[in-house]
């Protein structure tokens, strides 16, 4: 059960939408740049050689003795990709709720997106990056695909670090232009930010949900614990009460700076917290009027 019932109920008014018209074919929910076969009538246009004869409006031909082709709004499917950071730092949780790791929240968030995509007949896929490799769970549609990806989300394990650039290189090619890409990470992976900017620069609608723990937000420690990087990059020892103000100021500044950079690259950057409901970031990302 990845999605809490109240969260599932709150998903109803949300719509996945891309800033770019989806390029995919099929009967979807979204307006396509192409006209053609569809359910909604768009316009008549003069016949051109090459048009399928069955698309000629024969009743109109009988009235006007001219060939007209009936064009419809072509409905399109949106491609939704969720890229989840599975590096060791995603395994971090608050001491108050050791079960609610960042990764668990990320999985729940991804499940929400898949649920929305299923409701919209969109195609969706999952890419889990961590443990020094890239795991792709290819795109598909429908409930079965949603459930398959749900199982994959359930099996995600946080560990290791991000793979090198060579492993990431094929990714942009797998994600079709115009796709909606939702990246869920903790913001401590520069490679992930780089990937997001690269995708956003090549006509993919990229959003970035930065999952923070409540401890990173509030720094509620006392005593002088050793702050250790989950990925083993380093350790700091400090008296918590003394460094709290400095930490909050520095970390806040770093987050603001990163947010600015992402926004400048055209990425919708949203924060989520391990101790808060996920409906807030979901509404901010997908809460607008579903649209055009």
């Amino acid at each position: 059960m990845l999605i809490a019932p109240e969260l599932l109920a709150a998903l109803a008014p949300l719509r996945l939408r891309s800033r770019y018209a989806p390029a995919g074919l099929g009967t979807g929910f979204h307006a396509s740049p192409h006209r053609g076969s569809g359910l909604e009538f768009a316009e008549y246009r003069a016949y051109q050689p090459g048009d399928e004869p069955r698309r000629v409006d024969w009743k109109l031909y009988a009235r006007s003795d001219r060939f007209f082709v009936r064009d419809a709004e072509r409905d399109a499917q949106l491609h939704v990709w969720v890229i989840v950071d599975c590096s060791a730092s995603m395994g971090q949780a608050d001491a108050a709720a050791p079960q609610r790791t960042r990764l668990a929240q990320a999985a729940a968030l991804a499940a929400c997106v898949f649920e929305l995509a299923t409701r919209q007949n969109d195609r969706f896929g999952l890419i889990a990056i961590g443990n020094d490799r890239v795991a792709m769970h290819g795109d598909g549609e429908g409930r079965r695909h949603r459930d398959r990806l749900g199982l994959a989300l359930d099996a995600l394990q946080a560990g290791g670090a991000w793979p090198d650039a060579a492993a990431l290189a094929p990714l942009p090619a797998r994600i079709a232009p115009g796709a909606l890409v939702l990246m869920i990470g903790d913001g401590f992976e520069p490679a992930m930010d780089g990937l997001a900017m690269r995708l956003a620069g090549t006509r993919r609608d990229v959003s970035f949900v930065t999952l923070l723990t409540a401890e990173e937000r509030d720094f509620p420690f006392d005593g002088s614990p050793r702050f250790e990087d989950p990925e083993g990059a380093g350790v700091r020892r400090a008296v918590a009460e003394r460094v709290r103000t400095g930490f909050l100021a520095r970390f806040g500044a770093a987050r603001a700076e990163r947010q600015r950079e992402l926004t400048r690259a055209g990425i919708g950057a949203v924060d989520a917290y391990t101790d808060a409901s996920l409906i807030v970031p979901l509404r901010r990302l997908f809460g607008g009027v579903p649209g055009a």
Binding site: Q92, F188, E216, G223, P225, F227, A238, G246, F247
Partner: peptide, 14 residues
Amino acid sequence: RVVPFAAWRHVTEQ
């Protein structure tokens, strides 16, 4: 006691 803390870089050593 060890606290896994990804934002460790922003904690000043003291």
